[in-house]
């Protein structure tokens, strides 16, 4: 005998996907991550095109040459593009809406992705000047989470021309 007439039929199934990786940061990124513990943002300059990469990957993607020269970049910069997160997902730490942005740090030639806080999501905009809010030294580790988030500095917006190449 079947229960199908009285019991709700199956309409959905659980189909979780789980991918377990072991991420190896590499030499350049490991040095970058360790400098975060000291409150410093380490980048590398390409000997050919002169571009400054953060986080550094040990080579220039455009020229294919090793980037051995290390330079420190500022912990403040300009929002080049951003995304307002309005969708809930599992293991979400922040309350929505919140803003994830690409920040062109002063002295860098590539954007760094991080959170923007201490400002309403709908106030974040391209060209906005922001600065890092670091965790207290004793809580820092070799992780980008040592920077808790970025917040507006209150400076006037950067001119579009100053970051148009990076959008």
């Amino acid at each position: 005998m079947s229960d199908t007439d009285t019991v709700e039929p199956v309409r959905s199934i659980r189909a979780p996907a789980r991918l377990e990786y072991r991420f190896t940061a590499g030499a350049a990124q490991s040095r970058f991550l360790r400098h975060l513990v000291e409150g410093k943002i380490l980048a590398q300059r390409c000997p050919q095109c002169g571009k400054v990469y953060v986080s550094p990957r040990g080579a220039c993607a455009a020229d294919g040459v090793a980037t051995r020269e290390e330079v420190e970049v500022a912990d403040r910069g300009t929002v080049t593009t951003f995304c307002v997160v309005n969708v809930k997902f599992a293991q979400q730490v922040l309350t929505i809406p919140y803003v994830s942005a690409t920040i062109l740090l002063d002295g860098a030639d590539i954007g760094l992705m991080h959170l923007i806080q201490e400002v309403e999501a709908d106030q974040v905009h391209m060209g906005m000047r922001v600065e890092a809010v670091w965790s207290p030294p004793e809580e820092r580790g070799p992780t980008l989470e040592s920077i808790r988030y970025f917040r507006p500095t209150g400076e006037p917006d950067a001119a579009y021309e100053s970051y148009r190449e990076y959008v």
């Binding site: 309409r11 959905s12 199934i13 659980r14 189909a15 979780p16 996907a17 789980r18 991918l19 377990e20 990786y21 072991r22 991420f23 190896t24 940061a25 590499g26 030499a27 990124q29 490991s30 991550l33 360790r34 599992a90 293991q91 070799p142």
Partner: peptide, 15 residues
């Protein structure tokens, strides 16, 4: 060189 686990999980439900 730093090494860390990186686990991606997608808790899909499929109709």
């Amino acid at each position: 060189v730093l090494v860390a686990p990186n686990i991606l999980e997608y808790p899909y439900t499929r109709t």
